[in-house]
Design a protein around this nucleic acid. Structure first.
Lengths: 160, 160
DNA sequence: CTTGTTTGGTGCGATATCGTTCTATATGGA
DNA sequence: TCCATATAGAACGATATCGCACCAAACAAG
């Protein structure tokens, strides 16, 4: 029965939407004024993957329009958290590098989230979370790979 | 080891953020121009829970600031998808009711998502989704109940 | 090389989000 | 009853998101 199969997507996406909202609020509560979740996401990505990526790389990684990434990076640069240099391999593009201040801020934010996550870990079964994590990852990869399968006519500017 | 326990939250929230982004794009691709995910969310909520809720009720339900809900409702009203009447029990507030047009549009959107979800169901293991759904629900409820545990000093306007 | 097409990035305008402030109504004591 | 406080909603301004148009560099075909 297809309806039952498809309904679960609906339900899961619904829950995910609410959790995203709540977790974003959680994160932003620990960030300095003027900075929001996307700023942290970039700092984190540059730390975890690596420095020196181009804006378009990150726009693709996060699935946001490149204009949004430009805007986010502008904010980070104003705060001195990243710096951009021309890409030696491609005259059209930039590379984005973390500054010491950027590295430090990311570490501070993570540290300040420690107690919050500690509280969560004490009151919510983390084994269950460990269980759903691979499924979420698989779902994310699947949706990412197939996002062209769907879609309104033709957005020209979309990140890809 | 607390670090391992807390790290899973970080990872799960990260995946959820990306999935939210992708699924929202999926939904909005099936919505008429001028309407976006929050509009659908309200139509859906009014259908599934019930008509006649107040704006503040829904702002709380979705964890958005009440000004955002005002804005979303203004859009829905302009398109003739909902209508508001004064609340007979409270002179300060309104009640929001679906119009026939609103009910029809919600149904159309869901119908038009059918093939997309059908595709997903054919290529992704829905049993795994059924498995994670209860955990996501529990996590959503837990975060919702404990969102006051955390939080920047004092946001006055926040929905609650 | 030249030229047509693709691609990274920006400027701009439209709309969305959200914090602050204000108004009017409720509500809970004295 | 009166007053202090709390609450629903709107107005407003600041910033975010994102589509579109544009430019310059890259690249591919001839």
């Amino acid at each position: 029965m297809p309806d039952a199969d498809t309904a679960v997507f609906f339900e899961v996406f619904n829950e995910i939407g609410i959790i995203e909202q709540l977790s974003r609020t959680l994160l932003e509560a620990r960030m300095p004024d003027g900075l929001i979740a996307p700023h942290f996401t970039v700092l984190n990505h540059l730390t975890r993957v690596r420095d020196g990526q181009t804006p378009i790389d990150m726009a693709r990684a996060f699935q946001v329009p490149k204009t949004s990434m430009t805007h986010t990076l502008k904010g980070l640069e104003q705060y001195g958290l990243v710096e951009t240099r021309p890409n030696p391999d491609d005259g059209r593009s930039k590379q984005v590098w973390l500054t010491d201040k950027g590295k430090a801020l990311r570490a501070e934010i993570i540290a300040s989230l420690g107690p919050d996550f500690q509280f969560l870990a004490e009151h919510f079964d983390t084994v269950k979370l460990q269980g759903i994590r691979p499924v979420l990852t698989a779902l994310r990869i699947f949706l990412d790979e197939n996002r062209h399968m769907v879609g309104k006519s033709t957005s020209v500017d979309t990140t890809t």
